[in-house]
Write a protein that binds this DNA or RNA. Structure first.
Lengths: 332, 332
DNA sequence: ATGCTATATGTAACCCGTTACATATAATGA
DNA sequence: TCATTATATGTAACGGGTTACATATAGCAT
């Protein structure tokens, strides 16, 4: 690997001049620049980012914390963040936290030691306290866990209202909700949106709400219980698509036909929802756009440390597919 | 951020002694060590990895190249690699290549400049030539693209044979294959496995093979064509699960019942296959284990540069689910 | 002609570790 | 007792960049 000294020698100048050429800094004579460029070309020289990082205290790396990349919601988010970070000459580091605070802290130390420039975090368990451990810009994505951070989310509350209203509009008369973990802000808001629509209905029972932890198997289990205890249910709003699929699996194994006997709507808009049979009606989030926006905001903050806090909420969009259907006997 | 100098000052020793304590190198008096440890504790000192990397020419970073993390096969692979790299105190960098050579080269330059320690590559298009661009250990995973590299794969050929034989064993008498891109070694071997079983059958037609590019929509299209042109088909072996789901979707929209009229078997064992309805019979790969093994092999190679080339192939396992069924009328 | 500024380039300190080498004392062996 | 070795610690060079500061010439205004 050629170094800046080699380039300087070949071009017959000092390292400072080469550095000026590399960074388009200060004064450099056009002819000198030409000679330096030639030397760079000739030696196929690439500046050593580690040396730069050491001096600058910045590494041109951005990290994304997700609970688990195997959860199908996250790959698209990760892809978006990676695309934007790369476009801006950053390197993308992926960290699976399992929503485990200790892992998060270990990651933060490791990243700090590598002079990471900024972090995007999807988490419901991280404490604002633990962010003090690291002194770089942080953006919260998808879920809010500290009021001091800039955030990118969707309007979970309105989306949940719309989903519930949609089921009512189809003629559903008993609607259950499978919620995510209530310590997650998005799950909480989706639950609230549902409750604000149905809690005044005379048919509503608190036992129409069950927690599925954003997990397929768990959702399948609670949906089974829900459907067995409440055969009158004709609609389910699941707080995410994975749980929506779990609910459909539960219905199927109980011989309940979706969408004829039961309409299922969920939330997220992951590809898997389209592939399910029946395909899943859902409140679609602009997942890629959210990841991309979070990355952009982070880079803005890296470039301008004093930038103020900003919250951006995308809106969600109803995508009607096969898991919901207007009720025939809606002529009362 | 405290530096090693601060620690040295507080402990009343030189930086060399602190360094010795940090790295358990050379001689250090027990009492001195105690004082240094206290100083480290007191200042909450963490060594600067960038400075270390500059001196050592190694960054403790490992990169994984995948075509696209949004393809559901890769998250589990990525998760495995990340787990192992972290366990060994490496930082995990994810690179989506889109199987685009130019992106690959850009990544390689960027990683080289950051003194990355090693790379794991899933790719069908990278040339052995382009690997010369970077001078670090490389492991090929899932697909073989250079005979000079250590590789971790599965026995695609045997798996494909078993899948095809399984369909025959169920009584299928006309079996088509939806292949992946033939420039991918795994797709090629799966195709060959299929061909070696069926090409001598008198019913076999070359037009029973169609390429689906490992892509759902493409597979759905070619499956539709296949099923329309060849209504006699009663079995499909898709070269991966995503295409298997595409084939089922095609059958569904043509009113062909899976598995009663058509058995579908695929390859991979991704979670989505379980979630599909009917759930997908498949040749399951130990995806996590493969990623983990590749990471382990890479780390071995990083620690012992002269380690010889090694190829490891995991075996695949038949997982019977709802998309395949023994034919009733198999009494001839 | 003189002083000031813009242009051009070089020297060396600095970022923060690691380690070769120097130095010094204590322990061991002949 | 003297040489040798093990133990203990410090000094300074080094890795490869960036940049503050010094230096020097040319162009311009007064």
């Amino acid at each position: 690997m050629a170094t800046i000294k080699d380039v300087a020698k070949v071009a017959g100048v000092s390292v400072a001049t080469v550095s000026r050429v590399l960074n388009s800094n200060g004064y450099v004579n056009v002819d000198t620049k030409k000679r330096v460029d030639q030397a760079i070309e000739q030696l196929n020289y690439r500046p050593n980012d580690v040396a730069r990082a050491l001096f600058k205290g910045r590494s041109k790396m951005i990290a994304l914390f997700v609970p688990d990349i195997m959860n199908p919601f996250f790959p698209e988010l990760a892809r978006a963040v990676e695309d934007i970070t790369n476009k801006n000459d950053y390197t993308f580091v992926l960290c699976n936290t399992d929503d485990n605070l200790e892992k998060v802290l270990t990651y933060m130390d490791a990243l700090q030691q590598k002079s990471v420039d900024g972090i995007i975090i999807v988490s419901s368990t991280i404490t604002a306290e633990s962010l003090k451990r690291i002194n770089v810009p942080v953006i919260a994505l998808d879920r809010i866990f500290s009021s001091e951070l800039s955030t990118v989310t969707v309007d979970n509350y309105q989306g949940a209202r719309k989903a519930t209203e949609y089921l009512i509009g189809l003629g559903c008369q008993r609607i259950a909700h499978i919620s995510g973990p209530i310590n997650a802000s998005n799950a909480k808001n989706r639950l609230q949106g549902y409750l604000d629509i149905v809690s005044d209905e005379d048919w509503f029972l608190p036992s129409y709400v069950a927690s599925g932890s954003f997990n397929l198997q768990k959702a399948k289990d609670v949906a089974t219980e829900l459907l067995m205890n409440h055969p009158e249910l004709d609609g389910i709003f699941a707080a995410n698509d994975v749980m929506g699929i779990g609910a459909m699996k539960a219905a199927e194994s109980l011989g309940i036909h979706v969408p004829n006997d039961l309409s299922v709507i969920a939330f997220d808009g992951i590809t898997m929802g389209e592939m399910a049979t029946p395909s899943l009606t859902t409140m679609e989030q602009p997942i890629y756009d959210m990841g991309a926006r979070a990355a952009e905001m982070l880079i803005e903050q890296i470039n301008d440390q004093k930038l103020s806090r900003k919250n951006e909420a995308f809106s969600v969009q109803l995508v009607e597919r096969q898991s919901t259907k207007r009720k025939r006997d809606m002529n009362e």
